[in-house]
């Protein structure tokens, strides 16, 4: 499996990672090598094997509907990059 610069650009955008033009070739090469490693999976026929999403065969435990969290906005915003009036600020979102 070989990825090219265009593939990298598409994946990088989905992942919201800027990949510079001069990095793109190296990244494409590394990713292609990793995918070659991963491609070894295809040697085994897995037809009919149930997928295993989780090591535990255990049901979800449920939490009682109780409010336990007090307002800690000041603590939680202490290291926030940009806030005003209790809001997190981001560049204007256009809808």
């Amino acid at each position: 499996m070989s990825l090219d610069r265009a593939d990298v650009a598409k994946i990088a955008h989905l992942a919201r990672l800027a990949v510079d033009g001069d990095e793109a070739d190296a990244v494409a090469r590394d990713l292609s090598r990793i995918l070659d490693l991963v491609a070894q999976m295809s040697v085994v026929n897995t037809g009919g094997v149930p997928p295993m999403a989780h090591p535990l065969d255990m049901p979800q435990r449920l939490r009682p509907d109780v409010v336990t969290e007090p307002d800690r906005r000041d603590d939680l915003q202490a290291t926030a990059p940009a806030t005003e009036a209790g809001l997190y600020l981001v560049p204007r979102v256009i809808e």
């Binding site: 990244v27 990713l31 999976m41 295993m52």
Partner: peptide, 28 residues
């Protein structure tokens, strides 16, 4: 970054079954 990109790729439309689902089966 490499791992984020690989992970994004293997979950993306058209590749999920070949990679992620296959890996879950092998995990089994």
């Amino acid at each position: 970054k490499r791992r984020i990109l690989i992970g994004t790729y293997v979950l993306s439309a058209g590749y999920y079954d070949a990679y992620y689902l296959k890996a879950q089966q092998l995990r089994q």
